[in-house]
């Protein structure tokens, strides 16, 4: 298990938060998704071997941009 903190651009309403949650829950290996919409942060708990590219791809597919990965 590891924690990944993303800064995501383009989230501006609650629907955006739920879109990202929905999209990420479909990515294998992700345990939990937390969207702090007012801070533009998405905090993910995922298995250690998760592919970060899968995550950024899933997010960009629904129309948002990952600008920072921590």
């Amino acid at each position: 298990m590891k924690k990944i903190k993303l800064t995501v651009e383009g989230m501006h309403c609650a629907s955006c938060a739920s879109n990202i949650e929905r999209a990420l829950k479909k990515v294998a290996g992700i345990k939990s998704v937390c969207v702090a919409i007012l801070l533009n942060k998405v905090i993910i708990e995922a298995e250690n071997n998760i592919d970060i590219n899968e995550i950024t791809k899933a997010i960009s597919k629904v129309g948002y941009k990952v600008v920072k990965i921590e």
Partner: peptide, 15 residues
């Protein structure tokens, strides 16, 4: 742009 994308991906937002 953000709003119309919803109609393509079916991930709608308030836009």
């Amino acid at each position: 742009k953000g709003g119309l994308r919803g109609f393509v991906t079916f991930y709608f937002n308030m836009d």
